[in-house]
Simulated scan of single mutants.
Amino acid sequence: MIEVPLPDSRAREEALARLDALVKPLGALGRLEELAAWLSAAHGTVPPRPLDDVRVVVFAGDHGVSATSAYPREVTAAMVRVFLSGRSGVNVLARQVGAQVRVVDIAVDDDLADVPAPVRAHKIRRGSGAIDVEDALAPGEASRAFEVGRSLADEEISSGADLLIPGDMGIGNTAVAAALVGAVLGLPAEDVVGTGTGVDEAGRARKVEVVARALARPRGSGPFELVTALGSACAAATAGFLVEGAVRGVPVLLDGVFSGAAALVAREIAPDAVRWWLAGHRSTEPSQAFALKALGLTPILDLGLRLGEGSGAVQAVPTLRAAQAVISDMGLLADLA
């Protein structure tokens, strides 16, 4: 079990008292007050520090169940190049809040020989196995990918990150996420499978069949055995990223369904890590709702998004900054003339 520090409960109580003393009716700023107290506990100070340096790390990889998607597998490699060009959805949205975006090839089914070497430096394998008929990963690859995720979080934090956001890119990743959530929470495929990239009802029915076969396959009981059988190298790396953020005491803003599934796995490895995570937005995928309920997390935004990449979480950054500003800059009732 990985040891994780706990947020500062004293700072949280001090923050709640200060929020009640601001020039407003009690509780009038609703969720902003909850977030301000949460940030104060995470930072161990009232008011919490500004969130000036936001880092998005997009974990890219292919999945053997990509046939359940509305898009071909080759899109993953193409999208890595789009991230590098700065023209993806998350690139555009991140620029609006001053966040940095980094893409890492964890398991893209392409050599990507034309992209910068740092993007490929952490590659675990070329694609993951088709989880309905075989394990996603070879023995040992899940733990290797987990440590890669930890090292990436460590790099970002050591260079100044105030807030981490995990992004994902990989055709077939919503099927993998559904399988992981179904396995961890004991839910049937029908309940956790959504439309992903936008498949029709017939496509969703095929996807349900694939996930159901995956869930019926034998597997080990531990978190790494689970990711080996039903996950992917990207899921393992994302879980490591989430855990290391908590170990280093840096808030992590979850994105959509894929990071929600990885968070369930990460909680199995480091139960207290969930205290350092917030849910950026509500995905349209049903498995995310189950995952967030199990984690005890309420999404900050609900915009009907299903892009992934970290794009939904990035849009929640201004809300977190507003929460920090409220507790930092508002006046006190006691100071009224």
Rank of each mutant, 00 (worst) to 15 (best):
V227H: 00
H122R: 15
D154A: 14
V192Y: 00
G220Y: 10
G198D: 11
E201H: 08
L137H: 05
R248P: 12
G196H: 03
G149Y: 01
R126F: 14
A175K: 00
I165E: 08
A216W: 05
T174K: 07
P118F: 07
S158D: 14
V133G: 08
V181R: 00
V148F: 00
C234E: 15
A202F: 09
V247C: 00
I106V: 15
V193A: 07
P251F: 08
G167L: 08
A107M: 03
G245S: 04
E201N: 12
P251T: 10
S151T: 14
V247K: 07
S159N: 13
D154C: 13
I171Y: 01
V247Q: 12
D111F: 07
G172E: 08
A117S: 13
A113N: 08
E225N: 13
G160C: 12
A183P: 03
T238L: 11
V193Q: 04
G198S: 10
L164C: 05
G127R: 00
A216C: 05
I165T: 11
G149M: 03
A236V: 04
D191L: 14
L226K: 03
I171H: 06
G231R: 00
R213P: 07
A189W: 02
T238E: 15
G231C: 07
A237C: 05
G203K: 05
V211I: 12
V184A: 06
P188C: 10
V210H: 03
L163M: 07
A138Y: 06
R126K: 14
A177H: 06
P118D: 02
V243I: 13
G245H: 07
S232K: 01
S232M: 09
E155Q: 15
I157H: 03
A121P: 06
A113P: 04
L152C: 03
D111V: 12
L112P: 01
G196D: 08
A189S: 15
D191W: 00
A216P: 08
A178W: 02
A246Q: 03
C234L: 00
G231Q: 01
E209Q: 14
V247W: 01
D111R: 13
A178Q: 08
A236P: 04
V119Q: 12
A145D: 01
E141H: 11
A113G: 13
L242P: 03
I124P: 03
E209P: 05
A216H: 12
A189T: 09
